[in-house]
Design a protein around this nucleic acid. Structure first.
Lengths: 361, 361
DNA sequence: GTGAAAGCGCTAACAG
DNA sequence: CTGTTAGCGCTTTCAC
C-alpha cells in the first residue's frame, strides 16, 4: 500500500498538516522538523497524491494535448517537445488522437477538462466559435491556427510559402501550382494567401489545386492534374503531399526536378530520405510544442483555480488573460527536388540562419 | 464554475448519493428518478470529477505509456492505436518520452504511479529486476520485451528475422551481416539468436556488426564496415538503420540491391518511400498497442484498488495475476532492396497472409 | 512553528 | 429504492 501523508505524520511524530506544509510550503516549517519529515517520507517512499491535492487546490499539474493524427509525421516532434517541456515544469500530458474527427475533439475537451489545467489544441477543422466556447470551460492554447482572444502558437507558414515561391521564381519558373490542404484549414488558407501574393509579385502564374487530404496519397493522386496544369513547379501544403506527388509524377514518367520542381512544407525527417531529397520549408515544430506548453502555464496563473476555504469562485468576468499569439519563423531548406525552370535562373542563394523565435502582439 | 454532484442533487431534488448512483450504478436507481437526474445533469453540463472518484474507488481511469523516443517512427502508430483503444474503454493515456534514458523511465513510473491504473512500459534498456520491483508499485505491461512473471506484448521478431534470412538465402546469398541494435535490448538479442540459427540452417555465414544506436545515423556509419565484411546481404535491427545503411552504401558507390541486399525490420511508413523501396519485416505495432492496453485492463481486474470503507488493504500476497505473454506474428514484405545473390536464386515466394494474432501462454 | 478542524467532489456501506 | 454517514488524501484557514 502506498504511504499516505498520515503514515509520514505518524512516523515523524508531527501532525499531518506539518507534513503537508513540508511539501507544499517548506519555508513555513522549522528546518529541523522539515528534515525529519523528509527523511521519514523518503524511507516510506511517500509521494504526495496529486489527485487529492488537485481536489483542493484546483491545480492538477496535468495538461491535455489533442492532435488530429499522431501518425502524421508532423506531430511526433511536437508531442515530444511538449512532453519534455511539460515534464520539466512538473506537468504530465494526456496525449489524444482524434482521427481528424472534430466531434471527437470536442468530446475530448469536455472529457479532459476536469483532469487538466489546460489543453493544447491542434484542431485545424473545428470552428472558431466552438473553440471560443470550449475555452470558457478550460484554458486552451490553439496550435497551428489563430483564434481571436485566445493564445496561440503558429508557424509563419505565410512567410514560408513566400520564400518557397520566391525560390521557384528565382530559378526561372513562371507557371506554378499549389496543392492546397484540407478545406477550412487555417494553415492552408495562410499558405494560399501568401503564395498567391508572392507569385503575383514575382510575375508568375499560380494555379491552386485542391483541397486535398494532408497525406501522401493526397499528393500522389494529384500528379495527373499537375501534368494537365502544365506547370513547371509545385508547392505542396506539406511534405507528405509533396512526397506523394513525387511518387505520382514518377509513375507518370515525369522527372523531378528536371521537368517539374517540387517544394514541400514541414521538413519532416522523411524529406531528407527521398530521392530526390525534398526542398522544403522547415517548420520549428519542437519550438512550437515548447512554446505552447509555456503559454498554457503562463495563462494558468490568471485562471481561477480554487481559492481557499470559501471558494465562492466567480470566474473573472473581465477577460483579462494574457492572450499572446506566438509566431515562429520558418526557413527554406533547399535540397534536390527543385531545379532551374524554363525562364532562366538566378542564384537561389539564401544563407540559412538558425530559427529565431518571434513573438507578435 | 463547473457543476458538482451537489448542484445536480439540488436541481433534481434528490440526495447526492442518488446522483452518484445514477452515474456509477444506474440500475440501482428508479428509472424515473434516473431520467430526471440525468436531465438536470445534462442541463447543468455536469460531468463526474474523475479525480475525486478515483480518490475513493482507487481507479483513475488513466494509464501511462512510457516510450524511449516518440520521434522514432516505430512508436507513433503504437501510441495512436493504444490511445484509441484506451479511449474506447473510457481511459486516457499519459504519454511520456524518456529520451532513451532509463533513469528518467524509473522516475516516471514513480511519478505516474498514483495517477494511473497501470503503465505500458516500452523500456528496452531497463534491467529486469528493476522492472519487477517497479511492478510492485503499479501494474505494468511491458512492451517489446519479456520479463518473467509480468504481462508482456512482443512482436515475434525471431520469426521475422528467420523469414528475412531465409529470404536472403533463397535468393542465393551466403555471406550475410546483421546490424545489431542497442546493447541489452531484448529485441536485438532475439533477432540475433534467430538470425544466427537461420543462417546456420541455410548454410550461410552471418557476421554480427554492432551494437548500434537504433537510428538512421546508426546504420549510415556502418556502411564502411559492411563493405569490409565482404557480405552480399544485410539484415538490420530496424528500418531506420536499414535506410541509413542504404544511404551510406550509396555514398560509397555500392548499389542496392545489385551489389548488396538490405532488409529492415518494422515496416515503418518511410520504408515504402525510399529508393529502392525497402524489403522489411512488418511489425504489427498498432495491434501491439491495442493488445497492451487490453492486457493492462484485464490485469487491472485482479489488482486491489480500494475495498469499501474499511480498506485494510492487503496486497494479494499470492501473486495470482493473469500474467499472459502475447506474441504477435510478423510478416516479410518483399520490396526492391533485395535481389539475387552470387549463389544462384530460387523464387522468393511467400504468400502474405494478414496478421494473425497469436497468444502464447 | 504547529495542531485542530473543515472540506475539495465523490463513493460506499448501512439503514430505513 | 433512497437518504445518512463516514471518509479517500490532501490543503488551508484559524487558533494557540
Amino acid at each position: 500500500m502506498p504511504a499516505t501523508i498520515r503514515d509520514v505524520a505518524r512516523a515523524s511524530g508531527v501532525h499531518i498538516s506539518t507534513v503537508s506544509r513540508t511539501f507544499s510550503a517548506p519555508h513555513l516549517v522549522n528546518p529541523d522538523t522539515r528534515s525529519r519529515v523528509l527523511a521519514c517520507a523518503e524511507s516510506l517512499g511517500y509521494r504526495p497524491n496529486r489527485a487529492a491535492r488537485a481536489l483542493i487546490t484546483g491545480r492538477t499539474h496535468n495538461m491535455g494535448l489533442i492532435v488530429p493524427d499522431i501518425s502524421n509525421p508532423f506531430f511526433p516532434l511536437l508531442i515530444k517537445a511538449a512532453e519534455t517541456q511539460a515534464r520539466q515544469r512538473d506537468y504530465h500530458i494526456f496525449v489524444t488522437d482524434t482521427n481528424e474527427d472534430p466531434a471527437v475533439e470536442e468530446e475530448l475537451v469536455h472529457a479532459l477538462a476536469k483532469q487538466v489545467d489546460g489543453i493544447l489544441l491542434c484542431s485545424p477543422r473545428m470552428s472558431n466559435s466552438l473553440i471560443e466556447q470550449l475555452s470558457r470551460e478550460v484554458p486552451l492554447v490553439v496550435v497551428n491556427r489563430q483564434v481571436a482572444g485566445l493564445p496561440s502558437v503558429v508557424m509563419d507558414v505565410g512567410q514560408g510559402a513566400r520564400l518557397a515561391i520566391e525560390h521557384l521564381v528565382s530559378l526561372g519558373h513562371r507557371d506554378l501550382a499549389l496543392l492546397s490542404g484540407p478545406r477550412g484549414s487555417w494553415t492552408s488558407r495562410e499558405i494560399r494567401r501568401a503564395a498567391t501574393a508572392a507569385a503575383r509579385a514575382g510575375g508568375a502564374e499560380l494555379t491552386v489545386l485542391g483541397p486535398n487530404p494532408p497525406t501522401e496519397r493526397g499528393g500522389q493522386t494529384m500528379a495527373e492534374q499537375v501534368r494537365r496544369a502544365e506547370v513547371t513547379a509545385v508547392l505542396a501544403y506539406n511534405d507528405l503531399m509533396a512526397i506523394g506527388l513525387m511518387e505520382g509524377l514518377d509513375s507518370l514518367g515525369i522527372a523531378v526536378p528536371a521537368e517539374v520542381s517540387v517544394v514541400g512544407i514541414d521538413d519532416i525527417t522523411l524529406s531528407r530520405l527521398t530521392r530526390p531529397k525534398l526542398t522544403t520549408v522547415a517548420n520549428p515544430t519542437a519550438a512550437a510544442g515548447r512554446a505552447a506548453v509555456d503559454m498554457l502555464l503562463q495563462q494558468d496563473g490568471s485562471w481561477p483555480g480554487r481559492v481557499g476555504r470559501g471558494a465562492t469562485g466567480t470566474v473573472p468576468v473581465d477577460d483579462r488573460r494574457t492572450t499572446a499569439q506566438v509566431t515562429l519563423q520558418t526557413q527554406l531548406v533547399i535540397r534536390d527536388s527543385t531545379g532551374p525552370g524554363p525562364h532562366g535562373t538566378a542564384d537561389p542563394g539564401g544563407a540559412v540562419a538558425p530559427f529565431p523565435e518571434v513573438v507578435a502582439s
